[in-house]
Nucleic acid binder design. Structure first.
Length: 159
DNA sequence: TAGGCCATCTGGTCCT
DNA sequence: AGGACCAGATGGCCTA
């Protein structure tokens, strides 16, 4: 989505943002960041932000911009971890990308199932199949027994 | 159009 | 002091 707006590395982004703010303060900060603003308008500074030119001269602007870059980079790392996690939970073949909250909930349920399989010592495939058919007494109480997970498990090709 | 999801900005808090 | 982390606010995009 918005990440497509940034075609350069984060480190480059940091220096780009900072240099932009330094290069042409007369251009007004209302148009910041230039061109690639994913939100569209925030503009800089945001409404309610106290500072402006005085903040710039005192270094607050520079620190704020750097903090914004760090925060974006941190969120990129978090989203990367979510992408990795999505690769390890069962999904429907036609399913669009899971949301973050759905990914977390599905992962919790899936981990619970895997743990149960380990404790049972049974063959994973037959264990799941029996569960889905209601053949195991614990099925109704199982912590992984969510409609989200069981529906996806029924789609898995075990061969 | 409303609601869900998301990226970003921002200020506060805690840690090194 | 500066960075990491967090939560609230805001606005854009998409779908039912």
């Amino acid at each position: 989505m918005e990440e497509l707006c940034y075609g350069f590395e984060q480190e480059d982004l940091a220096s780009e943002l900072l240099s932009w703010a330094e290069e042409d303060p007369s251009a007004g900060l209302d148009t910041f960041p230039p061109a690639c603003s994913p939100v569209g308008q925030p503009a800089w500074p945001r409404p309610g932000w106290e500072g402006g030119a005085e903040a710039d001269s005192s270094g607050r602007l520079r620190q704020r911009l750097a903090a914004n870059v760090r925060e974006r980079k941190r969120m990129v790392n978090i989203n990367s971890a979510f992408d990795q996690l999505r690769c390890h939970v069962p999904t429907f073949p036609y399913e669009k990308r899971l949301s973050k909250i759905d990914t977390l909930r599905l992962a919790i349920a899936y981990i619970a199932l895997l743990g149960e399989i380990l404790l049972s010592g049974c063959d994973p495939r037959s264990y799941v199949e029996r569960c889905l058919k209601g053949g195991l007494p614990s099925r109704e109480q199982a912590t992984w027994n969510t409609s989200d997970l069981t529906a996806r498990l029924s789609w898995i090709k075990w061969d």
